[in-house]
Computed example of a mutant assay.
Amino acid sequence: MMFSIYLLEDDEQQRAYYREIIDNSIMINNYTIEVAELNDVESFYNAFSKEQFGLFFLDMEINGDIKAGVKIAEFVRNSMPDAKIVFVTTHEELAFLTLERKISPLDYILKDNDKEEIGNKISKDISLSQEYYRNSIYEKENIFGYKIGSKYFSIPMKELIRVYTEKESPGRVHLESDSREMSFPGNLNSLEDKYNNLIRVDKSSLVNIDRVSSYDVHKRILYLDNDYQCDVSYRKSAKVSRLF
């Protein structure tokens, strides 16, 4: 899951200023964010990807259509329910229309405000959306989330096979999945408490129960997808046997 910002503004000078604020916010906070800078409705639809989590800065009036931004926001809300939408506009009177269409925007930024206030609101909206994105990774059980430094990453839980620790690298958790193998700072106890589908098979391994192929109770070996296998401790064997 990728965090993206979409900036839709048909005025070149205003768009350049908003983009500068966005880029500075990303750089200062070391965010991992992709930015799509767009100037008309067609380019927006070409760039839009519902696979991503998005923060949308939308001008309400695009090329003379004062409801263009509202129409796009309605499309975004239907396609990406968790999206964060911010209107940057001179048309404060259209706020009721966004309520009527259940768009639930995060913020309204009036272009009549001074530049400093506009910049502060854009930066704050990015920070709030990044916080929501980070929390959503860790709260959804169908997503496995982890952090490396100041950056947050996630993979679909269905791709995760197992996580484990090694004596040679204390304080780090190793991950094996369909798409990647890597390590990150952490501990198994917190992951076991958080994700119900991860079960402890010994003191140093958690496996995704949905990725288990079979269990040899006599050898105490658990066979996993992609030809992975792991030993099951004597203490955990009875529990694993009941599951498989």
Rank of each mutant, 00 (worst) to 15 (best):
M1G: 02
M1K: 12
F3L: 15
S4H: 06
I5R: 00
I5D: 00
L7F: 05
D10T: 00
D11S: 01
E12L: 04
Q13N: 08
R15E: 15
R15F: 11
I21A: 04
D23G: 02
I26A: 05
M27G: 01
N29S: 09
Y31H: 15
E34W: 09
V35P: 01
E37N: 15
S43H: 07
F44K: 00
N46P: 06
K50I: 10
E51P: 00
E51K: 01
Q52D: 15
F53S: 07
L55G: 04
L55Y: 07
L58W: 15
L58Y: 14
D59I: 01
M60I: 13
I62T: 00
I62Q: 02
I66D: 10
I72N: 00
E74H: 07
F75E: 03
K84T: 05
I85D: 09
T89M: 03
T89P: 02
T90D: 12
E93T: 06
E93C: 02
L94P: 00
L97R: 01
T98D: 04
E100I: 09
K102M: 11
I103V: 14
I103Q: 05
S104Q: 08
P105V: 11
Y108I: 02
Y108K: 00
I109A: 01
K115E: 15
E116N: 06
E117T: 08
I118H: 04
I122M: 02
K124G: 05
K124S: 12
D125W: 04
I126S: 03
S127C: 10
S127I: 14
S127L: 14
S129G: 02
Q130L: 12
E131Y: 14
S136N: 05
S136P: 00
E139W: 04
E139N: 12
E141F: 08
N142H: 12
F144A: 01
K147T: 13
K151P: 01
F153I: 05
P156A: 06
M157G: 01
R162S: 10
R162K: 15
V163G: 00
V163C: 05
V163S: 00
T165C: 10
E166V: 14
S169T: 15
P170L: 07
G171N: 10
E176V: 08
E176K: 08
S179N: 13
S179C: 10
S179D: 12
R180G: 00
R180H: 09
R180C: 12
E181S: 10
P185E: 07
N187G: 11
L188G: 03
S190P: 07
S190R: 09
K194I: 12
Y195G: 03
Y195W: 13
N196E: 11
L198Q: 02
V201M: 04
V201Y: 05
D202G: 05
K203A: 13
S204G: 06
S205W: 01
L206G: 08
I209Y: 11
S214L: 05
L224R: 03
L224S: 04
L224D: 10
D227C: 08
Q229F: 15
V232P: 02
S233K: 01
Y234E: 14
Y234F: 14
R235Y: 13
R235T: 10
R235K: 11
A238F: 09
A238Y: 06
K239F: 14
K239C: 08
R242K: 07
L243N: 04
F244W: 08
